[in-house]
Simulated scan of single mutants.
Amino acid sequence: MRVFLRDGFEGASVDEIAREAGVSKATLYSYFPDKRVMFTEVFSIECQRQASEAETELAQTPPAPEFLTYAARRVIRFALSDFGRSLFRLVVGEVSRFPELARQFYANGPGMLRGKLVARLRELCERGELEITDFDLAVEQFVQLAKAAVHDRVMLNLVEDIRPEEIDKSVEGAVTMFMARYGTKR
């Protein structure tokens, strides 16, 4: 992962990956038939690890505003992390040469997150807290709302870091707007 994040997909050599991992090149090829599979597996495992961590932290789905606040903070935390920043830039940088890598990254990262959010939003609808007809659209809207005030500035290196009060403001705005659109009117 360090080699891919540092050197990019094209720049990462299997020799360097083997050296960093402390194994032979032959050992790597016995597990991964090519660099693309290695890339996909490395980042899929990390995305799955982070998703499992989030699910462990939140075993039960709390009331909608509390869940949405938690989810927005997780989305922002990932986007602001060194790993999240580097991975996003890497995939965007390689997408024109390796579109299948971007598709695999999306399926195993953002796509997996969105699937998990859809399941939780369905649960909140079944409990009568939300009214959603298009879950995929609602999740896309929510994720973009959560990142709206921070993502582009960070990805473009316009700021070194985002202040905690900016994160709070972004999270609160996302939850308020989402609840105004999808919350039940009780």
Rank of each mutant, 00 (worst) to 15 (best):
M1W: 00
V3M: 04
F4H: 04
F4D: 08
L5S: 14
L5E: 15
E10I: 14
G11E: 05
G11Y: 08
A12E: 13
S13A: 10
V14D: 14
E20R: 12
G22E: 15
G22K: 02
V23I: 15
K25Q: 15
A26F: 13
A26W: 11
A26I: 02
S30P: 08
S30A: 13
Y31Q: 11
T40F: 02
E41R: 05
S44D: 15
R49M: 00
R49F: 00
Q50M: 11
Q50S: 03
A51K: 00
E53L: 11
E55N: 10
E55D: 12
L58S: 08
F67R: 00
Y70Q: 13
F78I: 04
A79E: 12
S81M: 10
F83V: 03
R85D: 12
S86I: 01
F88Y: 10
V92K: 09
V92W: 00
E94P: 08
V95D: 07
V95R: 09
L101W: 10
F105Y: 14
F105R: 01
A107C: 09
A107Y: 03
P110W: 10
M112G: 06
L113F: 11
L113C: 04
L117H: 02
L117Q: 05
V118F: 05
V118W: 02
A119D: 13
R120V: 13
R122H: 14
G128C: 05
E129R: 02
L130S: 02
E131T: 04
I132Y: 01
A138Q: 06
V139K: 03
A149G: 11
V150N: 13
H151Y: 13
D152K: 05
D152M: 12
V154R: 08
M155T: 01
L156R: 11
N157W: 12
L158K: 07
L158M: 13
V159Y: 10
E160P: 01
I162M: 13
I162V: 15
E166C: 05
G173N: 14
A174T: 06
V175N: 05
T176W: 07
M177N: 07
M177C: 03
R181H: 08
G183A: 06
T184N: 00
K185S: 12
R186F: 05
